[in-house]
Design a protein around this nucleic acid. Structure first.
Lengths: 343, 343
DNA sequence: ATGAAAGCGCTAACAG
DNA sequence: CTGTTAGCGCTTTCAT
């Protein structure tokens, strides 16, 4: 077991080269005002002596962590891994590190995580809200301090922050329209218990589609739950018991749509024959379940890149509040067997 | 536009309470030696004054970043998002932050990323190696400094570091055996150009299975490529041109297996009828492609948790080098249509 | 083009 | 139980 070598500091280099620490600091930073030959000597000495800059000291001095935080309900989804991949690419190019935290959809964990990020002095934050979240008070500290904040995917409109998302109204409309065109007359909608703006938008799209196709809106066909797996199962059972059974359902996320299909099958209901099912997100499960799930797909990678880019813009020029602070990305519906009544 | 409020420091609190900064520091840390009443006053004042601890200063003072780095080829895979989710859960509970970086499978990016992590003074590192990587020299600095390092998934045996992976020999064996049992006599194997230990192990499993079933090993049935998407396409074409056409192929990753299937179909070859195909990883694509892909599945979430736990163990007690430093997790093959010659 | 000196905010000996 | 003091290693005025 060999001893751990001592850390080299700019003072060591300064001593070795008979210059001041200030010069070494400037030299390593590639400062123009330092003589080119001195600069070279410094770089060489640093290399030879095995120097590594101490970011911890630099961070303190500059009051800047060079870290961007990103938080979301869960990162166990292909969508989210794409978001992160996109954000990481943009941010690492700009010299920032990305720290990640999951809220596991809990508001209290979201509050704690936000606080932790704040205390860790992230230079900026990207947030996709937890299902439970109903207001943005716990992010006020960021706004007050002028720390750039970008919401993505699960956004709430906020006057001072950018939001990057898809057009959930349109997506909800499109998928409902698809079900209608498959011949569905009584379409259930299963959405989030606490109506986040995302869920509310999908709901609005659903309503609008019914309206446009002259299908009466029926309160009884709406189920509000936390969209857990068990909720899908539960709703499947409820459907069975309804006097006027629905012939289609639009569920606001895939996980729930999948558990719903599973239970329907268990109960002997044919999907899509008896009941057509559509989800939202195009998660991995969507193409594992039999029949494969019709759903809404959107590009997480682009969303990550877009959100990160806007964050950087603010970091570079805080005054430049972009005019439009709600950015809408494209989405499209992917039609699979779970909704195809007509071949 | 309101002015940004001044940051409160422990000195402000000290002044307000007429105690020393040291006492405030100790009080906030919940140090037993501080009078319980003083401690309470301190916490209250901190709260009231809007204090937040400056981690940047604390980090410098303690020479500890409280950050764990994790790096991998790409995080755009459901497997990887599960690994990260698992690691994040364990690490955040222990008070660590996770910073993420992708190498995009490039050795030079891996070297740079490792250097960046090192300079950023991560307290520990989790690494899944890039395809290109052939040695671990660029991680020496971590070993020398005694910074805990855990390899996961794509590991290279390293005497001083823990590796968490699956038994790739066994997995390679099992999937080859499955193809044999489906009646395949001439099974190709497509694997990584630079034989990482992971790829080498899968290859070894393949060979062993052939041996056990008395199928002669044929050098011509082995293709070494970087396993890019285009390589799958290319190999599909090659298969068509072979005088003695193979009746099965085991590809060392799913992405490549999928592109191979796509091209085979385009060329009018029936999968699995003419050629059975098996992949590795159980990525999202595996159940999008028609026919769905037979592949090897393993639990990224568990792997992330395991790797993080071992990292923490070392962080807590650096002397406690675990005896076994290669940890093997379970894996299993998932049989889908792409390999089913017999109903 | 370089140096001197101060300080970012916190923690940990050490002393009392 | 609390205070004094001395840095952690770097950056940045301000001088020269």
């Amino acid at each position: 077991m060999s001893a751990i070598p001592k850390e080299i500091t700019i003072y060591d280099i300064a001593r070795a080269l008979n210059v001041s620490a200030a010069t070494v600091s400037r030299g390593l930073a590639g400062h123009e005002s330092v003589n080119i030959k001195t600069r070279q000597k410094i770089t060489e000495a640093a290399q030879a002596m095995g120097y590594r800059s101490n970011q911890l000291a630099s961070n303190l001095r500059k009051q800047k962590s060079n870290v961007i935080g990103i938080m979301m309900g869960t990162l166990r989804s292909s969508f989210m891994s794409n978001v992160i991949a996109g954000a990481e690419e943009i941010l690492s190019k700009a010299g920032y590190n990305l720290i990640i935290s999951q809220t596991l959809e809990s508001l209290s964990k979201e509050i704690n995580t936000a606080k932790a990020m704040y205390n860790n002095r992230v230079d900026g934050l990207m947030v996709s809200l937890a299902y439970e979240t109903e207001n943005l008070d716990h992010f006020d500290s960021f706004v007050q301090r002028g720390i750039p904040l970008v919401y993505f995917d699960r956004v709430y409109p906020h006057p001072h922050c950018i939001g990057v998302s898809i057009d959930n109204v349109k997506a909800g409309y499109d998928i409902t329209e698809h079900l209608i065109k498959q011949g569905c007359k009584r379409i259930m909608h299963m959405t989030a218990f606490k109506l986040s703006s995302v869920a509310a938008d999908r709901f609005a799209g659903y309503k609008k589609a019914l309206e446009d196709y002259n299908i009466p809106f029926d309160e009884n066909l709406i189920t509000l739950t936390p969209l857990a797996l068990t909720d899908g199962t539960e709703v499947a059972r409820q459907m069975l018991d309804m006097e006027n059974r629905p012939d289609g359902i639009f569920v606001a996320n895939d996980a729930c749509a999948v558990s719903c299909i599973q239970e329907l099958k268990r109960l002997g209901i044919n999907v899509p024959g008896d009941i057509a099912v559509a989800g939202f997100n195009n998660d991995t499960e969507a193409c594992i379940i039999e029949p494969n799930l019709t759903t809404v797909n959107y590009n997480g990678y682009e969303m990550g890149r877009t959100a990160a880019t806007h964050l950087l813009d603010q970091l570079i020029d805080p005054s430049k509040k972009s005019e439009k602070n709600q950015i809408i990305l494209d989405s499209d519906i992917i039609i699979r067997e779970s909704s195809l009544k007509k071949a």
